[in-house]
Design a protein around this nucleic acid. Structure first.
Lengths: 348, 348
DNA sequence: GAAGCACTCTAAAGCGCTTTAGTACCCGTG
DNA sequence: CACGGGTACTAAAGCGCTTTAGAGTGCTTC
């Protein structure tokens, strides 16, 4: 028979009440800063609680209507595309910073796709597990805002454009359109006329925003050799698309990759095909990371502060949980860090 | 005044009881597969529950002693070293797979260091938040096992060698020593005699295991130009150490990096210094990832299945939660994938 | 033909907290 | 001196579930 552990017992409010010689309700009032107890009693109770190492049971709190002191985050990505992206862990660590201050837990789940994600929200809601959620990777025709509205689950959408159809949701986003415009500006100024955008997952809101903006910028300037090609963000597809476009009759002179991993793969592929970066083709990565300074040539990249992005999102959510109104926050436009992978177009 | 949402009400067991015309206790028995109700009643109750979309409130469950249906994972790493590592997200996604099957939640927290981590465990325990935890990055002189033992919190240590002082904890680990020995074997056979190991964080159990093994292997073969240098896993330190050792009087002919990011930085640095890989210096990365195939030369790397590692750990934890005995599981030894960054030592 | 039993079900307590309603007391007022 | 009104506190209900102790059937059994 396995030796039974003797788990230390958790102190409860009843213990405090007994030690302090007051009723449980008095303890509750005292510890929650509510009126109804004198200052000296409050102090005494607080001391006893501290001394006993008491912490409120979230279960009991949640049950008596106080909420679960937890927010949820679900990542809908296939397991194998997860590892490479530095963005998420940074985002999460920013989120954590803010949540930790308020002793809010982060319930985390990774699933295969959006339908699964919706199921998770429903389950979390029914199980009383979370007080609110952070939604990432918003999409065009996204079912999630409507669902969260229906459930009455406070939520902030990270990376989506504000959506007036769901006024209950907050939004935190970066102006991809502005960033894309500035990148095109820069490349145009360097003489680039044929530009290919190796985009991320089709259907993601920010992917579509970038694609739309690129198209608009091209039209405005009368450029015809400009296109966007969507991928799954993997190095494999990044390489494959690069190979294809560089092998065409009139290859582009500039490539914009929607993440750092694809950009890296793209440079490797270009080099392999005999293209020199940036002499023959310029490369811009949309997402800066250590990776960009780990290969030669160093990659020019759009840099944003993902940790701060996470902090902002978490702050919005806590505001919502405190009963604040939903709002929209725009974080600074990603800034283009020019390194070695961009240069004047050949022949200018 | 902000429009109040009309949150859908969650169905409770009372609702089911009413609809099914039985008592709440009968519902509880029926839904939990306990004896005490007839099969036809059980079926009826189940149907009503399903129809109502009922899910047990974890708060209520936890309160009545059933546990929180949640396990915890805390990552003690400074925020900025987090993003680069592909290992964790893969581990987490493996963990999730197993937990999701059983509707267990994963409470996730990132903190600055081990003391904070201990505080989090205490808090989680006092708040009744988790039923068990997964501990990563075990260290030499690690305070965590003792703490978890004291709290009676089921735990599985990921990556540590089994520790007989805390029989309550399970362990899942890979045989770093064996892997290191095989790498040295391979390099030795290729003629390498001066080998530098750019190790990870000093104090981590697996770092120390690798270092010890390397030293033993060197001694066994009478090699003197062999050493380990610990780093913080960052590309910056990887590059710095590489620069230093390659600049020495008798530079090593083989470098073993404890992660993929440093290996990449190392190759870049070596190339910059005029060393050709693998002609002048061979490079092995301890951790395979897409990165290793994204630079030329492709990196030879020790590969393990991190997702499966996570699954195994999660399975051990659920076994523990089910009342099983603590155990030790050894996952397969990482395998060396030989690509282009390793070759015969110059002059052999 | 009453005792015993197995079976299905109900009542009620309890988990740790919050909150409402209520009690006891003290103070100043007219 | 009775009254109103505040302050400091307690009692008790309730959140949604589990679980123990019974209660009420219909069957066997000697």
């Amino acid at each position: 028979m396995p030796a039974k552990r003797s788990p230390a017992r958790r102190p409860t409010m009843k213990d405090i009440a007994r030690r302090a010689g007051v009723s449980e309700s008095a303890v509750s009032f005292a510890l929650n800063g509510r009126p109804g107890v004198s200052d000296v009693t409050r102090e005494r109770v607080r001391r006893v609680a501290e001394q006993l190492g008491w912490r409120p049971s979230t279960a009991a709190r949640a049950l008596s209507g106080e909420g679960a002191a937890t927010v949820g985050l679900v990542l809908a990505r296939p397991a194998d595309t997860l590892g490479v992206d530095s963005f998420f862990l940074q985002l999460v660590s920013g989120i954590q910073e803010v949540l930790a201050e308020r002793h809010l837990g982060l319930l985390f789940q990774v699933v295969e796709g959006v339908p699964d994600e919706c199921a998770v929200y429903r389950r979390w809601w029914a199980e009383h597990r979370v007080d609110g959620v952070l939604v990432v990777d918003p999409r065009t025709d996204d079912p999630r805002p409507a669902l969260l509205d229906e459930l009455g689950l406070p939520a902030v959408v990270i990376g989506g454009a504000p959506d007036e159809r769901h006024p209950g949701l907050s939004t935190v986003w970066a102006d991809d359109a502005g960033a894309m415009a500035s990148v095109v500006d820069g490349l145009y100024a360097l003489g680039h006329r044929r530009i290919v955008h190796i985009a991320g997952l089709s259907g993601l809101a920010h992917t579509e925003r970038r694609i739309r903006t690129l198209r608009a910028e091209a039209r405005r300037r009368g450029l015809t050799g400009v296109e966007s090609i969507t991928t799954d963000y993997s190095d494999a597809e990044g390489a494959a698309v690069t190979r294809r476009v560089l092998g065409s009759a009139a290859p582009p002179t500039a490539l914009i990759y929607d993440n750092d991993v694809m950009a890296l793969a793209g440079v490797a592929t270009a080099t392999e095909l005999g293209f020199s970066v940036p002499a023959d083709v310029s490369v811009v990565a949309w997402e800066d990371s250590a990776l960009c300074r780990m290969v030669k040539p160093w990659l020019s990249a759009l840099s944003r502060d993902s940790v701060e992005f996470g902090r902002t999102a978490a702050r919005e959510l806590t505001a919502l949980l405190d009963g604040g109104a939903a709002g929209t926050v725009r974080v600074p436009v990603p800034r283009l860090i020019e390194r070695e992978s961009t240069g004047p177009a050949r022949g200018t």
